[in-house]
């Protein structure tokens, strides 16, 4: 067990260290792309906590991403707040929204939960459009100059600098990865898996499953919001398209592709999906056709995702 734990720590720290070193070797374009991938992977990791570990399939995670994005973006745009402060506002919005949604939506289970989250997300999207006066709806807003520079721990940082963005994204990824890793290996994580496998029995054993699910939904929503807030501030744009159903399906895809219920799966899935679309789109405008075919092949031959298959065949210790 402890040697497995050591292996696991070594693997995850190794991935993060690898990503840190990679920035010195990556060609410029891939440097920019990996920044995006790391941020989106955070979104998928948040989603995976709920879906992969707890077995709750939300089809509305775009609303949490959007909560972070608009919380951060609107406070930077309209109130002129500094980048760290706006980022915190984005996270706070994620906490509040996921708590509210959790209290209501967790009264349902299974398919009803999918649909309820989907509908709340649709309401969130329409809310953004409804307040076009402040959000500019679908067109969205460009972050002002003032939100491109900030001071952190006495350091003057510029978000226009690709290296800064890369390392900030890596930092967020590292924090989230470590938190998720600790969470799923502890008692809490085991109770999540117990709920996934058999909620009724977990309840009988004396666990307050509603509270556990609420906690994990809030953590999941908040992680997703941190990704949205980071995305808004780093790439200087917020728009309602990020709240559409597409952005609820994306983390599901990333997670399933990489392997649901694994810590690294969402990251791997995000990276693969990004490059799959990026590369195939150069050869054909039907790149989504390729993506569709890949998904079908994947589900036929690797039903537990790539890392799930790896775990089943070779490395049982993979968290």
């Amino acid at each position: 067990m402890s040697s497995e734990q050591a292996k696991s720590i070594f693997l995850h720290a190794g991935v993060l260290a690898g990503l840190f070193l990679l920035q010195f070797f990556l060609p410029e374009y891939h440097h920019l792309s990996v920044t995006r991938i790391m941020l989106l992977a955070v979104f998928a990791m948040g989603f995976n906590l709920l879906f992969g570990y707890t077995g709750l399939l939300s089809l509305g995670h775009a609303m949490f991403f959007a909560a972070g994005m608009y919380g951060a973006g609107l406070s930077a745009y309209h109130l002129g707040w500094s980048v760290p402060l706006s980022f915190m506002v984005g996270i706070a919005c994620g906490v509040v929204l996921s708590l509210a949604i959790g209290l209501i939506a967790l009264r349902t289970t299974g398919v009803a939960f999918m649909i309820v989250t989907l509908m709340f997300s649709q309401v969130a999207y329409l809310t953004i459009v409804y307040f076009t006066t402040y959000t500019r709806g679908d067109e969205g807003l460009v972050m002002p100059e003032s939100a491109r520079q900030f001071v952190l721990f006495g350091q003057q940082l510029s978000l226009t600098h690709p290296g800064t963005r890369y390392n900030l994204a890596l930092m967020l990824l590292a924090i989230v990865m470590a938190s998720v890793w600790l969470l799923v290996r502890g008692d809490f994580g085991r109770s999540l898996i117990a709920i996934r496998e058999n909620e009724a029995r977990t309840k009988m054993l004396g666990y307050n499953t509603f509270l556990i699910k609420l906690k994990v939904l809030v953590v999941s929503g908040t992680i997703s919001a941190s990704s949205g807030a980071g995305y808004a501030l780093m790439f200087a744009y917020i728009g309602s398209s990020f709240a559409t159903i597409q952005y609820s399906i994306d983390p599901l895809l990333y997670t399933l592709l990489g392997g649901a219920g694994t810590v690294l799966g969402p990251f791997l899935g995000t990276a693969l999906m990004f490059y799959l679309i990026d590369i195939t789109s150069e050869y054909t405008s039907a790149y989504l056709l390729v993506a569709g075919i890949v998904l079908v092949i994947l589900v036929l031959f690797f039903p537990r995702g790539l890392l799930g298959a790896v775990r089943n065949r070779w490395f049982g210790w993979l968290p």
């Binding site: 399906i249 599901l252 895809l253 399933l256 989504l288 056709l289 993506a291 569709g292 075919i293 890949v294 998904l295 079908v296 994947l298 589900v299 036929l300």
Partner: peptide, 9 residues
């Protein structure tokens, strides 16, 4: 997942 794939296809 399979039907999402079919959707795209």
């Amino acid at each position: 997942v399979a039907t999402i794939g079919i959707l795209y296809i």
